[in-house]
Amino acid sequence: MSTVHRRLHSDLINSDRSSPGPGSKTKQGTMQHHGRILFLLPSLLLLGGFVVIPLGLGIGLAFFQWNGLGAATFVGFNNFITAISDPEFWHSAEITLWYVLGTTVGCNLLGLSLALALFTKFRGWKVFRTLFYLSGVMPIVATGITWGLIFNPGDGLLNAFLGAIGLRQFEGLWLASPHLALPLIIFVGIWIGVGLPMILFSAGLMRISPALLETAELDGASGVKRIWYVTLPLLKPVMIVTTLMLLISSIQVFATVWVMTGGGPGYATYVLGIYLYNTAFEYNRFGYANAMSVIIAVVAGLSMMVALKLGRVMEPS
């Protein structure tokens, strides 16, 4: 409805009726048209020159073997075939998937709980909201280094603290442990990402009519029941949005792993971003790295479309 409205408006604005001066009707029309290209030109140049062309080149290079310096050799679909049978690629895809699942679920649950708690509007809730969002605005490199210092097995903050309060037996290897490294990196991912879903759930809660909640209360629904049967179903559209945004942002994971574990110990936190970086800039296999980039971009794009479709199917209920 609103788009139709907007169209009508812009038609009105752009129609010849709006350009006075009877003699120069056509001339003014063309002038306006030239003006319009100027509006889009800077963006088209930037996006074309530094997004579309590089991505096109990347797709092209995916069919070549190239060490980043010399000439590239055409190898057809070889790079793609290599990727499919490359255990390291599948391993990093699996690690990334665990990370994506862990942070998406974790951020949604924690963000929803925080939003519900803030919604009681106790004195000072806005201060808490600010504090909870703050972790998300920190540079990710700085966040990773800070948590790295906390979970450092040697002289990190956590072990020092446990020792000081007499819980030496709980001191751990943390990031140096192959079992704990990935869960800890997921925890840091939640620490970084929880602010956004919290804000969106808060905004969603504000839009729920208070009358509805009052009716439920009068009907004798307890706090928990009210949340489960009234609030949560109404927050479903918000949850679809937060889930999409969290999926998009969590698959990006790179800097935290880079500064906290470098992908280790062993390959315990070897996410796709790290593998791609190493393939290109450590092993100088640029053609192969481009091919993996294409696969990842296509899979990400397709998953997005599927997720949007799923979201649309689920939304009407």
Binding site: V51, L276, I296, A297
Partner: peptide, 30 residues
């Protein structure tokens, strides 16, 4: 209203889910 407006917006939307590390190597190559 201009030709390709829809395509342009679709392009912006499709850019959204592509992870940055998947454009890093193409961008570097370019």
């Amino acid at each position: 209203r201009f030709a390709g407006a829809q395509a342009f917006q679709l392009f912006l939307l499709l850019l959204l889910p592509v992870p940055q590390f998947a454009v890093m190597v193409p961008v570097w190559s370019y």
